[in-house]
Design a protein around this nucleic acid. Structure first.
Length: 356
DNA sequence: GAAACGTGGTA
DNA sequence: TTACCAAGTTT
């Protein structure tokens, strides 16, 4: 093991001043130096969207949300279904449910003003240790230790830590705490994350142009690309199910709102079976002449692969389903469906056209 | 501590 | 095609 000089926050801040990425919610370092402060609502919204989600995916959702709901009070007053529909496609839908709960708590308990304090933020729905620190640091420039996946990777490499995650978390947090400066903590937090996203990347890190290449132990020892170590993930089982797509003669579509918990909770979807490793017996929502599509809808979730048989029927205007409710065509927006449900719809469109 | 919880991009 | 990965939180 070689020796290196310790890393310093100032080296990273100088790099950030020249290379900060542009994001719709971000106040760039030059503007911040002029005294411009970020909007805590926009920082909170972006941070919740960015949980386990890339900047590229978040940006368009962020623009739509803030155009439709410019303030936390606007969001708190929104219809639940509208918010879930706007979130559709972004994933981890508990975030959207907690987003609404949090907005309403900020209005009801904090006068519509986000608290700056880490402990107060942590009590709000959907805000955990990382997001509380990020809001406190970025929106209020408080010297919080902000540890996300980027920071864990950067610290593991800087100190050549081989302990696998998540056991390494306390060690990596301590390393991050030792580097967090009292000056410009908001810019510093964003700088480490930008570094992790653009230079100290998971695969093929660009060590040659890294502002911390001199102090980096993993760079010196040639281990950067192998860090951080992680516990291997379990294999995903396959689950099977049936989705029922029903169109009424007037064009209306049969949908149901899923329960406010668990997988895809609160989202619109097709009536259907449970999803299990055993193929389900058909249990259609109404009697009809069902057409079974030759192609299944395939989708992979966090912890299982899903194969959905798609059953399609056209019914008369007087049809009375046991489940779900008909939605008129102008109101039905496929973009408001979670991706797996949109895949089912896309497969059904050809048959629906033939029937209608 | 471990599992549940989405999706799209990339190798 | 498969597997890994991304600005985590909740139970």
């Amino acid at each position: 093991m070689r020796e290196t000089a310790p890393a310093r926050a100032t080296e990273l801040l100088e790099w950030y001043d020249r290379h900060a990425r542009t994001m719709p919610w971000r106040v760039p370092p030059a503007a911040r130096a002029q005294g411009e402060a970020p909007d805590p609502y926009r920082i909170w919204l972006s941070e919740v969207m960015l949980q386990q989600t890339t900047v590229a995916a978040v940006t368009q959702y962020f623009e739509r949300f803030t155009a439709r709901w410019p303030t936390v009070a606007d969001l708190a007053a929104a219809d639940d279904g509208d918010v879930m529909g706007e979130w559709a496609g972004l994933g981890y839908y508990a975030r959207a449910r907690n987003l609404l709960k949090c907005a309403r708590a900020v209005v009801a308990d904090h006068g519509g003003i986000f608290p700056a304090d880490h402990a107060a933020l942590l009590k709000l729905p959907g805000i955990g240790p990382y997001t509380a620190g990020a809001i406190s640091a970025i929106a209020f420039d408080l010297p919080e230790v902000v540890v996300d996946g980027n920071v864990e990777r950067v610290m593991a490499r800087l100190h050549d830590i081989h302990t696998p995650l998540p056991a390494a978390k306390p060690e990596l947090t301590a390393a991050a705490a030792a580097l967090t400066p009292k000056a410009r903590p908001g810019d510093y937090a964003q700088a480490v994350m930008d570094l992790g996203a653009t230079i100290c990347t998971p695969r093929s890190p660009a060590c040659g142009i890294c502002p911390w290449r001199a102090p980096c132990l993993a760079r010196a020892n040639g281990t950067a690309a192998d860090l951080p170590r992680k516990i291997p993930k379990k294999a995903k089982p396959v689950r099977l199910g049936i989705a029922y797509v029903v169109q009424r003669a007037d064009g209306a579509i049969l949908l149901e709102r899923r329960e406010d918990r668990g997988l895809l909770g609160g989202m619109l979807g097709w009536p259907g079976s449970d999803w299990a490793e055993e193929a389900p017996a058909p249990a259609p929502p109404l009697d009809a002449d069902w057409h079974v599509l030759s192609e299944e809808a395939r989708h992979t979730f966090t912890h299982f692969h899903l194969r959905l048989a798609v059953h399609v029927a056209q019914v008369s205007t007087g049809a009375n389903p046991e489940r779900g409710a008909f939605m008129a065509l102008p109101e039905f927006q496929p973009a408001q469906l979670p991706t797996v449900m949109r895949k089912v719809y896309d497969l059904s469109r050809g048959v629906l056209r033939e029937m209608g």
